[in-house]
Amino acid sequence: MQSDTQLLISVSEFLWYEADLLDHKSYQEWLQLWTKTGFYIVPAELDETDYLNSVNLAMDDDEMRQLRVKRLENGESVSAASVSGTIRMISRIRIVESSDDQVKVRLAMTLNEMRHGVLVTYPAEVEYTLNRSADGFKIEQKVVKLLHTESYLRTVSFIF
């Protein structure tokens, strides 16, 4: 394994920034992290790879990401109003592939949510495709593989 510490640091900085935005519900800034063509995907089957032709928990293109954020922000969703907060930890960050214009990253995440006084924990493996651009990384794809997928989720009114 060839180590590229500088790349790991800049990728980690970007992903921690994203995690911080989401935990603090800075959704408008979060939308700016994406490419126009990017997809936010939460698969419903862990071994699925053809996301376009299979049922996912979320499969958001640019338009759906904006609608999802709007739903969380406009005060109309009673479940979104019940999310008192999320705290996510990301770790085990590994650069899987790296080229001049793209970096693929895999990491472990645990997201904790307090909902109606009950702590719910979501462990997940998250895979990123990040495009390099003049003003830093942009997310081309984010796939959140929740351990709960194999069993049953509680309803989710935040962004992983």
Binding site: V55, M59, L67, R71, S77, V78, T155, V156, S157
Partner: peptide, 27 residues
């Protein structure tokens, strides 16, 4: 079939735009 799936994802399931609010009411 792809369109049917996208419409399903839009409302249904634990991360849809409909079901989480149902779940909140049931709870």
């Amino acid at each position: 079939n792809r369109k049917r799936i996208r419409l399903h994802e839009h409302f249904q399931g634990p991360m849809g735009f409909g079901t989480p609010d149902d779940g909140e009411a049931w709870e």
